[in-house]
Amino acid sequence: MGMDRREFIKSCSLVAVMGLLYGCRKLPLDEVARLGDGPTLKQFEDEVKLAVSQAKKQLDLVKVSRPGPLSIPGASPLNRFGMAIDLDLCDGCGECILACNKENNVPLVPEDDAARGRFMHWVDMRSGAPFMCAHCGKAPCERVCPTGAANHTPDGLSAMVYKRCAGSRFCGANCPVQARKFNFNDAQKLGLARKFNKEVPLRDKGVMEKCSLCLHRLQNDRLKFKTQLSVAVAAAGNVSVKNAAENATEWRGRGVTTACSDACKRRAIIFGNWLDEKSPLVQLTKDRVLYAPREIADLDPSVVFMRGRR
């Protein structure tokens, strides 16, 4: 292809201008993005109110038996964390949603998504009661996750490793109750995310997330417990410390709660360990009838509903 000098210089300068424009175009945009100080708490409250008022999805509950030890290999015989939501007490106020958003840094969504009901909230209102991931013992989402980002802990949590997630959304397609939320927007860049809780990372655009059953609280408690236990064992001659250690030599997650259960004024959400007799969960569900959504009743859910007395 022939090209004279004039044409050559013309092309070069065009490329240079394009390059310059490309290099600089972000500066003003980034400034705009940085102007906001992040959303206010009021915005989060309003969004929760909107979500509660929009909630239409209904739950079709069926009776289930009490969750027992997990059947997956490597499961802990001591711990299986879960929750029970008391439908007799719950009035559907939505406080749990706000508490969850603040605890887990759940971002806001842009207005058009909100109008379509596409919220990021880990807790939904369905049939007038809070509904979140049930942390199924035989979780269908984990089986289809290609990278292993969705996986089960020995303690019965269905956990997410955000950095391992490739965003294939296969887990979302395979969740029978649509408990999973996908980060369609870059909430940090759009100024929709606010880091209320420094313990929980903000999620990137393009990854899946869902209720973690306040995994970070359990992690912190477990690590603290193990540290203290070893100090207590080291001071073995010390009678009183030894006694304290003998109370529990294995971590059972006692005293840990989730943000939603803390926030519930009517104490309708109870968090605990299904395998620990001393856990409030076991004690308060003893004479109750347990329910779960029909779609996941066979999947051994850890988060169940209770209604009526036996």
Partner: peptide, 15 residues
């Protein structure tokens, strides 16, 4: 330490 990683100095020292 990245945000998504938990590292507890105490539990390692204890071990």
């Amino acid at each position: 330490l990245p945000d998504h990683v938990v590292f507890h100095h105490g539990v390692h020292a204890a071990a």
